[in-house]
Nucleic acid binder design. Structure first.
Lengths: 342, 342
DNA sequence: TTTCAACACGAAAACGTTTTCGTAGTTTCG
DNA sequence: CGAAACTACGAAAACGTTTTCGTGTTGAAA
């Protein structure tokens, strides 16, 4: 187990000074050609690689970006990570992944850990608990300390920073419009609670679509689900109590539960009821019938976030601050859970 | 944007030396009570946190562990990460995630990046290309440099290090035995290519189960799939050309494709053909019919890996080396894609 | 021969810690 | 009262780099 080679060791071995070694390896013209070649040959032969930690300390930047997400066992978030990783790697950055488990405390803890030098900046999607609580002091603190921050998906208006989101309203509208187009008239919506911005925005899109088509909004056709755990039962109860010909679900799971429930109660999908979901994951793709769904391009969201962050990191500090919000558009993937247009 | 507080600044502000500040904050009895309290109060008030990079440099350890996986958009790997993250966090470690994209070159590059001080050790599942190539010099190099390495899932015998695997043979055997128990006699297997150890081992389990039940092994009942992309077509072709009453698939996707194909060709699952998969993901759970499957507990694999690695990291270097291989047992999750036992 | 660039290299500071060792000033004890 | 032992603190080295600023040695110009 040979310890790592350092400049100092090379210097001693070749009987020159540390500075000379450093300069030679960085091709400084200050060093004579002969010495330079000798040092470079030696370094190459013994596979010298500079120590990142020392470099980080010296340069005051780590070349790693921290991403904090509520959960990782979730298709959408993994695609985002994948996107972040891709462009980060291309730009010579590493990615430190932390999970908040949707807990406010863990989110704060993670940020504090990473803020003390481990990371140059953050990419973050808020924990459910954080949004509920409405306490964003940890975000503001990071920003105040000069750490760039990019919020994605679950964002909040009151923090001034770069953001990457999808057009939830437009996406939901698109979905509901599709249901209307294929002939649905009584459309239920299965959503999450409102404090997750996503729930509110998609509800808005739902309403807008109805309005534009002169269909009356009916509060009773909306189900808001608090806990993932009991969702299946709630959906079953909800759907058995209201006569509908279309269902707009705010994620894959709800959509699938809806299909299951409907089928079990003797209804046919899509002949009797059309169902449309949000988030295009493995589930939607492989389910039978294939789920028509609104796809949010997680990979692109990750890529844009990383690009935004790195841009901030590498800009000279004198350039003035301004914050962008990038909207990654959603797409409609039509499969077999909605009737075809007439 | 106030810059971070450092020992030096505190020292200057309070007109003491840096050493005094450092000692006071670490509750050294060397420092008088009065001074100590003053310094601690100041530090607390201005929220001093030591710089991790400086600590890393000084202590020669980063308190972060690197995990390199072939792909992240994959339920199994995300559960593993989740497990690693969990125990890493509990023990005060951070997790650096890198993706090899199943490419040998990216795997090597990632290891080199992280080996230069970014990480104290590795948790790694080999890229497909790496296994195919059989070139493991980068692993050996890391070990030689004194960086502990834990291999999981896709491991290789020739490298001496800690390993966490599942009992692929037993798991496959269990699956096939289940098919036999519910009355299947002609059982097809849909597998991956052999150089991924998983493919080979599960095939072995398949054969063993048949053998123990005195059923003749038929080469024609095995399909080996190279590329994920074309799997669906291949499976369709394969199943339409052989009469079977049971299918053992080596992952969720293959299992689902099998069910789909069978249903389309008029067969009923599980009445006519029973199908069993490997890896218990969202897909298996939510599919209709729910997929009977062998579950590999990714979370536990991650936890065990992290524990193993951290144990190595924190043991005193004098303790002798020995390597463990932990086998995380698989479970059989019976759902609706296999007939019930008679 | 003197003067001065140009050249080739080294010393030292800096990044932010921790830790060893040294040393004033005070107390204790014989 | 002198020596020894504490007490409370500071100086400096070390971790591995990069970079600024010397400085000694050449060679050429004057």
């Amino acid at each position: 187990m040979k310890p790592k080679l350092t400049l100092k060791k090379i210097a001693k071995e070749l009987d020159v000074s540390i500075s000379t070694v450093s300069k030679a390896l960085r091709d400084s013209p200050e060093i004579g050609e002969e010495t330079r070649e000798k040092i470079k040959a030696f370094a190459k032969h013994y596979n010298y690689k500079p120590n990142n930690i020392a470099l980080s300390l010296k340069n005051r930047k780590t070349k790693t970006i921290g991403i904090i997400i509520p959960e990782i066992v979730h298709h959408f978030f993994t695609t985002v990570i994948s996107g972040v990783e891709k462009v980060a790697n291309e730009m010579g950055y590493n990615v430190l992944v932390c999970l908040s488990d949707n807990s406010f405390d863990k989110e704060v803890l993670n940020m504090e850990m990473l803020a003390n030098g481990s990371t140059d900046g953050f990419i973050l999607s808020l924990a459910k608990e954080t949004m509920q609580k409405g306490d964003y002091h940890h975000l503001q603190e990071a920003i105040n300390q000069g750490m760039p921050l990019v919020l994605f998906d679950r964002v909040v208006d009151s923090i001034a920073c770069d953001k990457v989101i999808i057009d939830d309203v437009a996406g939901a509208k698109k979905a509901v419009q599709h249901l209307l187009d294929v002939g649905c008239r009584r459309i239920a919506m299965i959503s999450t609670v409102d404090y997750v911005s996503v729930g509110k925005l998609r509800t808005k899109g739902y309403k807008e679509a109805l309005e534009e088509n002169d269909i009356e909004f009916d509060e009773n056709l909306i189900l808001k689900i608090e806990e993932m755990e009991d969702s299946e039962k709630e959906i079953e109860e909800f759907l058995s109590n209201c006569e509908v010909d279309g269902v707009f679900a705010v994620n894959e799971h709800f959509a699938i539960s809806a299909v299951k429930t409907l089928q079990e109660s003797g209804k046919k999908v899509p002949q009797d009821v059309s169902v449309i979901g949000f988030t295009d994951g493995e589930l939607s793709k492989r389910f039978i019938p294939g789920l028509t769904t609104v796809s949010q391009h997680g990979m692109r969201i990750g890529e844009e976030s990383a690009r935004l962050l790195i841009e901030k990191l590498e800009r000279t500090p004198t350039e003035e601050d301004y914050y962008k919000t990038i909207i990654v558009e959603t797409g409609l993937v039509v499969r077999d859970s909605t009737k075809s247009k007439k």
